[in-house]
Structures are given as structure tokens and as C-alpha cells.
């Protein structure tokens, strides 16, 4: 199965006599579109925020630079997506980033897990990267030109992120006994959160030709991930998935404390510019 944009279930050319007035339809579409942009934008923002915690803490200086680069790419993606969502919602990127509570975020649980050790960072970058790689590749042909443009830029960045993560996964998986153990542990910890990224959701059905059905991304993303894990001599965990709910306002327990830090200064000075 190749990733694909959600296709219309109605036969082509059928007249939709029952649709509401086009104005109402536009508004409903706009709300759906904004919601979808928040899915993507919040995943990127929260990943970038976690990577920001790595700077000055990386195992070597070169890696402070590399993780900073990846974080900056993700932050750039988040800003493009949240600005677009904000235009549809009548809010700017900072209002969306700093003045929403955790239940109003739409990120998956995987991206908000605590920083952990370097193995956790590598594993998360690999898993989220492999998903994003498929996602943005598919979105480059979205009927929404602006989203397609954002995806076209993001795909180049994300490919590099996955390469970087894959390189470390192999070095650490096939390095010392300790690094192998740490990588396998990190993989076991992250794995139950992976499925949430690919959960089908009614929202994407409403965004015909614009959004991607996440379920269609699963197979190619898993292929990429397992190829890396093979080379890294790591084992695909047999653990069960956990419930998720990030897309529907049921965030992980970790998101609240993260946002408390991220938003503290902005919220202390409401209405201020920086």
C-alpha cells in the first residue's frame, strides 16, 4: 500500500444535493483544515521543544550542533503550519503556541515523552522521522497548494533527519553491549506510542484530496524503520500499543509540564510583543 491522499468515497461527478450552503461548507472545511494543520504543527513544535532541551547536553559538540539543526528545521515547519492554521482561526502562531492549554494541543503522545537519554532521542527521531517522511512526501501533492508547499520544503529536511537518526541507531545498536542495551530499552519504551501516529481519523475523511489518511503511511514507514533496526541488530519490540488520544484533546501527562515551561514568560505578559 502506498501512502495516498484521502480519496472521495462518492462517485466522481455526483451532484451533492444534500450539502449545506457553500458558505457553511467553507466554514466547516476551514475548521477541519485548521484542525489538521494543528495536528502537524503541534507534532513539529513539541518535537522541536524537546530537542531544544538537548542543546548543551549532547554527548559531543558536533551533536549539539546537529540536534540544534534538526530542532530548528522542526521549529520552522511548526511555524509555517501554525501560521497557516492561525490565519484560518484568526490567531497568530504565538497565540496558538503560547496561549492554548494542553487539551487544545493536537500532538501525538510520542513527541511529548520526556527527553530521556540519547538513545531515546535517536529512537524518537527515527520513528517520528519515518512517519513524517511518508506524510510530507504524500502531502506534496495535496490539493491545498499552501500545504503542498510546506510539505515540499519539509520533506527535504525530514529525509536528512531520518538519515541522521538511522546513522546513530546503527552506530549505537551495533556498538558496545551497553549502547545496544540502551537502544533496545529506548526502542521498547517508545514502541507502544508508535501506532497512534497511524490511527485513522474521521478528520482526514473530511479533507478530501487535501489531507493524508495516516493509516496509509504505516506500511512504508515501518519498512524504513525495520530496515534500520535490522542493520542496527535491534529487535522490533513485541509490546502492545497504548491508547493515545493526542489528536482528540487527550494529551499525554508530559505535555502539561512541558507547556508550563514553554509558555511561562509569554503568559506572564499577555498582550506584550517580544
Amino acid at each position: 500500500m502506498t501512502p495516498q491522499l484521502v480519496s472521495a468515497t462518492a462517485p466522481n461527478g455526483a451532484d451533492h444535493a444534500a450539502v449545506p450552503s457553500s458558505r457553511q461548507a467553507d466554514m466547516a472545511d476551514m475548521a477541519d483544515m485548521a484542525e489538521y494543520l494543528l495536528w502537524l504543527g503541534d507534532d513539529a513544535l513539541v518535537s522541536a521543544q524537546r530537542l531544544g532541551e538537548w542543546i548543551t547536553n549532547a554527548p559531543e559538540l558536533e551533536e549539539d550542533v546537529a540536534l540544534g539543526n534538526i530542532g530548528l528545521d522542526q521549529l520552522g515547519q511548526a511555524r509555517a503550519l501554525l501560521s497557516y492554521a492561525g490565519e484560518l482561526l484568526g490567531r497568530n502562531e504565538d497565540e496558538l503556541a503560547y496561549f492554548r492549554d494542553d487539551v487544545d494541543f493536537r500532538c501525538t503522545h510520542l513527541v511529548s515523552l520526556p527527553r530521556g537519554d540519547f538513545a531515546d532521542a535517536v529512537v524518537r527521531l527515527l520513528l517520528v522521522g519515518a512517519y513524517s517522511e511518508q506524510l510530507y512526501a504524500a502531502l506534496t501533492t495535496s490539493a491545498d497548494e499552501r500545504l503542498a508547499g510546506i510539505a515540499a520544503k519539509a520533506i527535504k529536511e525530514v529525509r536528512y533527519h531520518v538519515e541522521h537518526a538511522a546513522g546513530w541507531a546503527v552506530r549505537l545498536g551495533d556498538g558496545t553491549d551497553e549502547s545496544h542495551r540502551r537502544m533496545q530499552d529506548a526502542l521498547n519504551r517508545a514502541w507502544p506510542y508508535l501506532d497512534e501516529l497511524f490511527d485513522p481519523h474521521p478528520l482526514t475523511d473530511h479533507l478530501d484530496g487535501i489531507a493524508v489518511d495516516p493509516a496509509t503511511l504505516k506500511e512504508p514507514a515501518l519498512q524504513r524503520i525495520t530496515a534500520v533496526l535490522d542493520e542496527a541488530t535491534l529487535t522490533v519490540p513485541a509490546t502492545q500499543r497504548v491508547a493515545g488520544g493526542g489528536r482528540d484533546g487527550r494529551p499525554s501527562e508530559h505535555l502539561g509540564p512541558m507547556l508550563a515551561v514553554m509558555q511561562v514568560l509569554a503568559r506572564a505578559h499577555p498582550g506584550a510583543s517580544w
Binding site: R79, L82, A97, V261, L265, H269, S273, W274
Partner: peptide, 8 residues
């Protein structure tokens, strides 16, 4: 970095 008051 984690508390910067705007995304910019």
C-alpha cells in the same frame, strides 16, 4: 531556549 517568549 525552552522559555523564549515567541517562536521567532
Amino acid at each position: 531556549i525552552t522559555r523564549a517568549p515567541s517562536l521567532h
